[in-house]
Amino acid sequence: MGRGRLSDAYTSGVYTPCTVLLMSIGHTLLGLLESGPRHGYDLKRTFDEKFGQDRPLHYGQVYSTMSRLLKNGLVEVDGVESEGGPERKRYAITDAGITDVSQWLAQPEKPEPYLQSTLYTKVVLALLTDRSAAGLLDTQRSAHLRMMRILTDRKRQGDLADQLICDHALFHLEADLRWLELTAARLDQLAKVVAP
Protein backbone atom coordinates (compact mmCIF):
# COMPACT_ATOMS: atom_id res chain seq x y z
CA MET A 1 0.00 0.00 0.00
CA GLY A 2 2.11 2.87 -1.27
CA ARG A 3 1.92 6.38 -0.07
CA GLY A 4 1.59 7.77 -3.58
CA ARG A 5 -1.42 5.71 -4.41
CA LEU A 6 -3.09 6.60 -1.24
CA SER A 7 -2.68 10.32 -1.68
CA ASP A 8 -3.75 10.06 -5.33
CA ALA A 9 -6.88 8.24 -4.38
CA TYR A 10 -7.73 11.02 -2.07
CA THR A 11 -6.69 14.16 -4.02
CA SER A 12 -8.33 12.99 -7.23
CA GLY A 13 -11.68 13.26 -5.54
CA VAL A 14 -11.18 16.40 -3.59
CA TYR A 15 -11.32 19.14 -6.20
CA THR A 16 -14.14 17.96 -8.42
CA PRO A 17 -17.20 19.48 -6.88
CA CYS A 18 -18.13 21.28 -10.09
CA THR A 19 -18.12 18.13 -12.14
CA VAL A 20 -20.24 16.44 -9.58
CA LEU A 21 -22.63 19.32 -9.63
CA LEU A 22 -22.82 19.37 -13.43
CA MET A 23 -23.42 15.69 -13.53
CA SER A 24 -26.28 15.97 -11.11
CA ILE A 25 -28.08 18.88 -12.84
CA GLY A 26 -29.69 16.48 -15.29
CA HIS A 27 -30.99 14.28 -12.47
CA THR A 28 -32.16 17.31 -10.56
CA LEU A 29 -34.14 18.69 -13.49
CA LEU A 30 -35.56 15.24 -14.10
CA GLY A 31 -36.61 15.05 -10.50
CA LEU A 32 -38.31 18.44 -10.73
CA LEU A 33 -40.24 17.23 -13.75
CA GLU A 34 -41.65 14.33 -11.76
CA SER A 35 -44.26 16.56 -10.18
CA GLY A 36 -45.58 17.52 -13.65
CA PRO A 37 -44.57 18.84 -17.07
CA ARG A 38 -42.87 22.25 -17.07
CA HIS A 39 -41.40 24.86 -19.37
CA GLY A 40 -37.64 25.30 -19.45
CA TYR A 41 -38.04 28.70 -17.80
CA ASP A 42 -40.11 27.22 -15.00
CA LEU A 43 -37.48 24.56 -14.45
CA LYS A 44 -34.74 27.16 -14.15
CA ARG A 45 -36.77 29.24 -11.71
CA THR A 46 -37.65 26.29 -9.50
CA PHE A 47 -34.07 25.03 -9.57
CA ASP A 48 -32.70 28.44 -8.61
CA GLU A 49 -35.28 28.76 -5.90
CA LYS A 50 -34.57 25.40 -4.29
CA PHE A 51 -30.90 24.71 -5.00
CA GLY A 52 -29.20 27.60 -6.71
CA GLN A 53 -29.16 30.28 -4.06
CA ASP A 54 -25.57 31.32 -4.61
CA ARG A 55 -25.23 30.29 -8.25
CA PRO A 56 -28.26 30.56 -10.55
CA LEU A 57 -28.47 28.24 -13.52
CA HIS A 58 -27.75 29.59 -17.01
CA TYR A 59 -30.50 29.25 -19.58
CA GLY A 60 -27.99 27.62 -21.82
CA GLN A 61 -27.27 25.00 -19.19
CA VAL A 62 -30.97 24.19 -18.89
CA TYR A 63 -31.44 23.75 -22.61
CA SER A 64 -28.25 21.82 -23.21
CA THR A 65 -29.16 19.49 -20.36
CA MET A 66 -32.71 19.10 -21.61
CA SER A 67 -31.54 18.27 -25.09
CA ARG A 68 -29.18 15.61 -23.64
CA LEU A 69 -32.07 14.17 -21.63
CA LEU A 70 -34.30 14.25 -24.73
CA LYS A 71 -31.63 12.44 -26.69
CA ASN A 72 -31.38 9.76 -23.95
CA GLY A 73 -35.15 9.36 -23.90
CA LEU A 74 -35.50 10.42 -20.31
CA VAL A 75 -37.83 13.33 -21.13
CA GLU A 76 -40.19 14.08 -23.97
CA VAL A 77 -41.71 17.25 -25.32
CA ASP A 78 -45.20 17.56 -23.97
CA GLY A 79 -46.25 20.49 -26.13
CA VAL A 80 -45.16 23.83 -27.54
CA GLU A 81 -46.63 27.19 -26.57
CA SER A 82 -46.05 30.47 -28.31
CA GLU A 83 -48.52 32.92 -26.84
CA GLY A 84 -47.19 36.21 -28.08
CA GLY A 85 -43.64 35.40 -27.32
CA PRO A 86 -40.81 33.11 -28.17
CA GLU A 87 -41.65 29.52 -28.72
CA ARG A 88 -41.63 27.57 -25.43
CA LYS A 89 -41.42 23.82 -25.12
CA ARG A 90 -43.06 21.98 -22.29
CA TYR A 91 -41.06 18.98 -21.08
CA ALA A 92 -42.44 15.86 -19.37
CA ILE A 93 -40.56 13.02 -17.74
CA THR A 94 -40.70 9.55 -19.25
CA ASP A 95 -40.88 6.26 -17.37
CA ALA A 96 -37.24 5.74 -18.15
CA GLY A 97 -36.59 9.15 -16.62
CA ILE A 98 -38.41 8.22 -13.40
CA THR A 99 -36.37 5.04 -13.11
CA ASP A 100 -33.22 7.02 -13.71
CA VAL A 101 -34.06 9.45 -10.87
CA SER A 102 -34.83 6.59 -8.53
CA GLN A 103 -31.57 4.89 -9.29
CA TRP A 104 -29.67 8.06 -8.84
CA LEU A 105 -31.24 8.76 -5.47
CA ALA A 106 -30.71 5.24 -4.22
CA GLN A 107 -27.09 5.21 -5.29
CA PRO A 108 -24.87 6.58 -2.53
CA GLU A 109 -22.38 9.14 -3.63
CA LYS A 110 -18.79 8.19 -3.51
CA PRO A 111 -17.77 9.36 -0.05
CA GLU A 112 -15.57 12.36 -0.50
CA PRO A 113 -15.34 15.85 0.87
CA TYR A 114 -17.56 18.70 -0.26
CA LEU A 115 -20.42 16.44 -1.14
CA GLN A 116 -23.02 18.48 0.67
CA SER A 117 -24.46 20.26 -2.35
CA THR A 118 -25.15 17.04 -4.21
CA LEU A 119 -26.48 15.35 -1.12
CA TYR A 120 -28.61 18.32 -0.29
CA THR A 121 -30.07 18.28 -3.77
CA LYS A 122 -30.79 14.60 -3.45
CA VAL A 123 -32.48 14.99 -0.11
CA VAL A 124 -34.68 17.82 -1.32
CA LEU A 125 -35.60 15.94 -4.43
CA ALA A 126 -36.43 12.88 -2.44
CA LEU A 127 -38.66 14.97 -0.23
CA LEU A 128 -40.28 16.63 -3.26
CA THR A 129 -40.94 13.30 -4.93
CA ASP A 130 -42.12 11.53 -1.78
CA ARG A 131 -39.21 9.15 -1.78
CA SER A 132 -37.52 8.10 1.49
CA ALA A 133 -35.04 10.83 2.33
CA ALA A 134 -34.09 9.02 5.57
CA GLY A 135 -33.22 5.89 3.70
CA LEU A 136 -31.12 7.92 1.32
CA LEU A 137 -29.22 9.47 4.20
CA ASP A 138 -28.74 6.10 5.89
CA THR A 139 -27.37 4.60 2.73
CA GLN A 140 -25.00 7.51 2.41
CA ARG A 141 -23.94 7.13 6.04
CA SER A 142 -23.09 3.53 5.42
CA ALA A 143 -21.06 4.38 2.41
CA HIS A 144 -19.21 7.01 4.38
CA LEU A 145 -18.56 4.63 7.22
CA ARG A 146 -17.33 1.99 4.86
CA MET A 147 -14.90 4.48 3.43
CA MET A 148 -13.82 5.48 6.88
CA ARG A 149 -13.28 1.87 7.81
CA ILE A 150 -11.07 1.42 4.76
CA LEU A 151 -9.10 4.53 5.58
CA THR A 152 -8.77 3.45 9.22
CA ASP A 153 -7.48 0.11 8.07
CA ARG A 154 -4.95 1.73 5.75
CA LYS A 155 -3.92 4.07 8.49
CA ARG A 156 -3.27 1.21 10.87
CA GLN A 157 -1.01 -0.51 8.42
CA GLY A 158 0.66 2.58 7.03
CA ASP A 159 3.43 4.78 8.32
CA LEU A 160 3.12 8.16 9.93
CA ALA A 161 2.58 10.02 6.62
CA ASP A 162 -0.20 7.62 5.68
CA GLN A 163 -1.71 8.10 9.07
CA LEU A 164 -1.69 11.85 8.77
CA ILE A 165 -3.19 11.84 5.28
CA CYS A 166 -5.81 9.29 6.22
CA ASP A 167 -6.66 11.27 9.32
CA HIS A 168 -7.26 14.35 7.21
CA ALA A 169 -9.71 12.44 5.07
CA LEU A 170 -11.24 10.79 8.09
CA PHE A 171 -11.92 14.09 9.80
CA HIS A 172 -13.57 15.44 6.67
CA LEU A 173 -15.65 12.35 6.22
CA GLU A 174 -16.60 12.54 9.85
CA ALA A 175 -17.76 16.10 9.35
CA ASP A 176 -19.92 14.88 6.43
CA LEU A 177 -21.27 12.12 8.56
CA ARG A 178 -22.20 14.54 11.28
CA TRP A 179 -23.96 16.63 8.68
CA LEU A 180 -25.79 13.52 7.49
CA GLU A 181 -26.87 12.72 11.03
CA LEU A 182 -27.96 16.25 11.72
CA THR A 183 -29.90 16.38 8.43
CA ALA A 184 -31.52 13.06 9.25
CA ALA A 185 -32.61 14.48 12.55
CA ARG A 186 -34.06 17.56 10.82
CA LEU A 187 -35.81 15.87 7.93
CA ASP A 188 -39.28 16.72 9.17
CA GLN A 189 -38.39 20.39 9.41
CA LEU A 190 -36.83 20.36 5.96
CA ALA A 191 -39.84 18.65 4.42
CA LYS A 192 -42.07 21.47 5.63
CA VAL A 193 -39.82 24.05 4.01
CA VAL A 194 -39.24 22.46 0.62
CA ALA A 195 -42.66 20.92 0.08
CA PRO A 196 -45.13 22.93 2.06
Binding site: D138, H144, L145, M148, R149, L151, T152, L170
Partner: peptide, 23 residues
Protein backbone atom coordinates in the same frame (compact mmCIF):
# COMPACT_ATOMS: atom_id res chain seq x y z
CA UNK B 1 -18.39 8.79 16.98
CA UNK B 2 -17.87 7.72 13.40
CA UNK B 3 -14.11 7.68 13.72
CA UNK B 4 -14.38 5.23 16.59
CA UNK B 5 -16.95 3.17 14.73
CA UNK B 6 -14.55 3.05 11.81
CA UNK B 7 -12.47 0.57 13.79
CA UNK B 8 -15.27 -1.95 13.47
CA UNK B 9 -15.93 -4.59 10.83
CA UNK B 10 -19.57 -3.66 10.63
CA UNK B 11 -21.91 -1.08 12.08
CA UNK B 12 -25.44 -1.16 13.29
CA UNK B 13 -27.50 1.95 13.81
CA UNK B 14 -30.02 2.22 16.59
CA UNK B 15 -32.76 4.72 16.03
CA UNK B 16 -35.93 5.02 18.12
CA UNK B 17 -35.18 1.75 19.83
CA UNK B 18 -34.69 -0.23 16.63
CA UNK B 19 -31.38 -1.54 15.39
CA UNK B 20 -30.68 -1.55 11.66
CA UNK B 21 -27.87 -3.25 9.91
CA UNK B 22 -27.76 -0.99 6.85
CA UNK B 23 -25.18 -2.85 4.81
Amino acid sequence: EARVAAYSDRDVTVRDGRARDLE
